[in-house]
């Protein structure tokens, strides 16, 4: 092979070549999107339930660190050994990874809502569900987004383990590069994964600006924000 860095060689970006970077990128995005979707479908309702009722708070508070302590490589190895190869073991392992930050941040977001606002909403005759969806959730959104972004960041970086069990995704560049002692390929993998993570985080940041009411984020109100929102960066939710 020649001296062109792996990342810059046009043939590695050629869509018509199976296993080229665009294919791996697409597969990686697919794994990420599906895992985050399934994870959010589990964690959001559960987090809202716990945050709204206050029951099960222990679970929500400790889910974050417990989830983080579970080694994904081990979980995936176990699932593959018990189930056989395929996407399902990878999906389960990544969902287990993404549920805790979303769950913890949803709970924390709901808890951070000013009780006066909730009381006021009740006083206006809103039902429990209305209070949750119209008052608590919108006010909790900045924090919820923090957890979501942290989760996405973790999944993008961890989805690389899929390659270890014979699947596709950007992890192929890492695992194959390692097996072939091709350091350029590993670097290419690292750069593309990091770039993808940044791009997705920026995208979610934009969505967040769109979705969070200006009345809550303090944007465009012509006054400085009273305090830094709890979750400005994806790393925040981790610390919760």
């Amino acid at each position: 092979m020649d001296d062109t860095p792996y990342l810059l060689d046009p043939s590695h970006w050629d869509w018509s070549v199976a296993g080229s970077i665009p294919h791996l990128l697409l597969a990686h995005l697919g794994y990420t999107a599906l895992s985050v979707l399934v994870g959010a479908l589990i964690a959001l309702p559960l987090g809202m339930l716990i945050g709204h009722t206050g029951r099960g708070a222990f679970l929500a508070i400790n889910a974050g660190n417990a989830g983080r302590s579970l080694p994904t490589l081990g979980l995936l190895s176990l699932l593959v050994t018990l189930m056989s190869i395929g996407f399902l073991p990878v999906l389960i392992a990544l969902v287990v990874l993404v549920v805790p930050p979303i769950l913890t941040s949803t709970y924390a977001g709901l808890r951070s809502v000013d009780p006066n606002a909730v009381d006021a909403a009740r006083g206006m005759g809103m039902s429990g569900l209305q209070v949750l969806l119209r008052v608590e959730l919108p006010m909790a959104l900045p924090v919820v987004f923090g957890g979501l972004r942290a989760g996405v960041l973790q999944v993008v970086s961890t989805a690389t383990v899929a390659a270890y069990t014979g699947l596709s995704g950007l992890g192929r560049l890492l695992v194959d590069g390692l097996a072939l002692n091709d350091y350029g390929r590993v670097v290419a993998g690292a750069v593309v994964v990091a770039a993808l993570a940044i791009a997705l985080d920026l995208l979610l940041g934009l969505v967040q600006r769109r979705v969070v009411s200006p009345g809550i984020s303090g944007r465009g109100l012509g006054r400085s924000r009273p305090a830094r929102p709890v979750a400005e960066s994806p790393l925040d939710a981790g610390v919760l």
Binding site: A18, V80, T81, S84, I85, G86, A163, T165, G166, R172, V175, D176, A179
Partner: peptide, 21 residues
């Protein structure tokens, strides 16, 4: 037609053979 990177003659390869992957 296609190459699937698995493991060095280990359970992944055997499993993929027997399940038709």
């Amino acid at each position: 037609k296609e190459f699937r990177p698995l493991d060095a003659g280990g359970p992944l390869t055997i499993g993929a053979l027997t399940d038709g992957t």
